[in-house]
Design a protein around this nucleic acid. Structure first.
Lengths: 298, 298
DNA sequence: GAGTGGATTTCGCAT
DNA sequence: ATGCGAAGTCCACTC
């Protein structure tokens, strides 16, 4: 389990890939291999930093946390502050994953991964008895050099993280915001009712545009997918049949899933982006007002 | 040196304060004490995150790096990307350090530190067999909850870091920028000649203002201090004597040290702020040009 | 404390 | 590729 490579304070846990208080030579090897494997590197040590590119900067020696991510992003953090003191945004890492079907009956399919290098590339080498990690990027042309003379911890991580991240306001918040500020949906949009019962269920907001057309608004708090479009289409069709009038359908959501946009256009429905931030701002102003009051006023 | 508290994979290095693959109970104690001591915490583990405030967000489970800094800044980083997926900017930590003079002859002065809590406060507790780290902030009101069910590494760091950070454009960059765009110094400023740097750190440019007065420009790539003002004053005085004409002196730098501004005004010199960013932008258009070429054109 | 503008802004979506 | 606008922008400075 433990594999103490050398030195009195050095500990290497192979399974977790952590070096504690390593000699600089061990750290060098460890870091180089970590970068080659495109893992996440987590480094704590005494270093100075030079940046050259869109501007220039120099950071005198001190103990910092350095993170190198799978996409080549480089972050250098001090003991305070939200922002990194130095950094390099690394992007455009594309993993082309291709499944190669096995010809054997009970054999697993192979997976071929073509890895495309990130915008940001790294060079690791000793210089003046210090370990230099040099990150270079084209477009814009810039470079960050980190010089270590002491490592407290070096860790190579394979972070397993497929968890979805969703940013949203609650659907009720979005509804409130739209009723308080109908122009969020469209200029001169006039809400008539909300949570109106229609055949298949309830319409989120129901109103009229400046031409006098009926408008059905469907609200989704997160990225709108196919099901949101179909739901809206159902309401629009139902109201068209009931009223025998022109009815527009507008899908309001923070954003819309790739490809769903074309489906939406095909059946002549519309999309209006509405960010959670904007909803929160609108609600700030009318926090105390009750949902019902919006209509009593009119 | 090694102190394996429990579990097969757990290692605790007291001196470096690192827990590797700890049980959740150990991690809890460790993290709570780390936060109380206002140290930097470095955590790697499986977690999900909920944010509520200016907007709302939910991050499904996955392995991430979590950093809590001395000022209460909270960063949650995934395996890619420059930006944290969730965060809390922690600021306003003020250490009031007061030196209490010792009355004894050969005794050290005492230092009294009044610590003012950061805007962001933390609560650590078990919830549903997970460790919840709850960060709360007022103004704006927001909260981040991180739920851990597995820790790979927990580290409490006392980062010793007094290294100065300086952001600047090189003096040549700033010189080029001014020659390319003289209005950076002043409207209708006309450069006449430039002088290569005499002492490290600054370069002079000679020119004329729209009134026909001679203008001496001193460039500092970093925050201008007293010495910059005195250097400029020396130049201005020398040229006044030589030419027997009115000479203005303008100090160009990213910014000026506190208090130096008044000194500058006292001896009737001027200051013009010029950010490295602005220089970089100007130079974007004329990156390859030699310094001399700015005059050949005219 | 609120408002304003800059940033080594970054990031995403449009053309 | 390029350009434009939003961001849980952050951050520093002014009023």
């Amino acid at each position: 389990m433990l594999n103490c490579l050398s030195g009195t304070n050095c500990v290497c846990l192979k399974m977790t890939n952590i070096l504690v208080e390593p000699h600089i030579d061990e750290a060098e090897d460890f870091i180089r291999r970590g970068i080659q494997k495109h893992n996440v590197l987590l480094i704590v040590g005494n270093c100075c930093v030079e940046y050259e590119g869109r501007a220039s900067s120099k950071l005198e020696p001190g103990e910092r946390i350095v993170i190198i991510k799978e996409d080549g992003a480089l972050l250098i953090h001090r003991s305070t502050g939200y922002e990194p003191v130095n950094w390099m945004p690394g992007g455009n890492v594309v993993y082309h994953v291709r499944t190669i079907k096995s010809k054997e009956e009970n054999s697993r399919d192979r997976i071929s991964v073509n890895w495309q290098p990130p915008d940001c590339i790294f060079h690791v080498q000793m210089e003046d008895k210090m370990l230099k990690i040099h990150a270079v990027r084209r477009k814009p042309t810039e470079s960050v050099k980190v010089f270590f003379d002491k490592f407290h911890m070096v860790s190579v991580l394979s972070l397993v993280d497929s968890g979805e991240f969703a940013l949203y306001a609650t659907e009720e918040d979005m509804q409130k915001a739209i009723l308080a500020e109908p122009s969020l949906v469209e200029e001169e949009f006039k809400p008539i009712s909300y949570e109106r019962k229609v055949e298949p269920g309830f319409v989120d907001v129901y109103g009229m545009d400046k031409e006098g057309n009926l408008v059905v608004v469907e609200i989704k708090r997160k990225t709108a997918g196919n099901e949101a479009v179909l739901q809206l289409a159902k309401y629009v069709d139902a109201i068209r049949e009931n009223t025998n009038r022109d009815v527009r359908g507008i899908l309001v959501a923070p954003n819309i899933a790739k490809g769903v946009q074309t489906l939406l256009a095909t059946i002549k429905l519309e999309f209006k982006a509405l960010s959670p931030r904007k909803c929160a701002k609108i609600l700030e102003k009318s926090r105390t007002r009750k949902l019902e009051s919006f209509f009593k006023e009119k």
